[in-house]
Amino acid sequence: MSESYTLYNQTVMDHFLNPRNLGDLPEADGVGEVGAAACGDIMKISLRIEEGRIKDARFKTFGCGSAIASSSMATELIKGRTIEEAMHFSNQEVVQALGGLPPVKIHCSVLAEEALKAALEDYLKKHPELARKTPLQSAPAGA
């Protein structure tokens, strides 16, 4: 074949083939692992948090190309954000930054949002004094 075609757009393919922030953080301050009821995918996000700000993020994903790309992009986007800002993180940001996902794959970006929020929740559980100041936003169902 002379031409090459891709199932997803170039940005999604790039994040699938060259994932950013892949792995675990050995001394993570917060870890969230979530599963998708729809398809069975699993996503895990680890955060290092210093002075109320996300210093570093890592992910591991069991799932399709768009699930891997969504978690890679989500970890890129949230680095440097305050906990407060990260609480308001939406899957739509992932979709936009990836230049769009097929409709049937939007739930992959929702899973990334859920993994991030589960990691923040884990962090706040260990820091109840912060939890009072920043009530957790629940992820929109099936957005």
Binding site: E33, V34, G35, A36, A37, I42, F62
Partner: peptide, 9 residues
């Protein structure tokens, strides 16, 4: 079982 525990399904 692990996946179902995480997703609640």
């Amino acid at each position: 079982a692990h996946a179902s525990a995480l997703s609640g399904k």
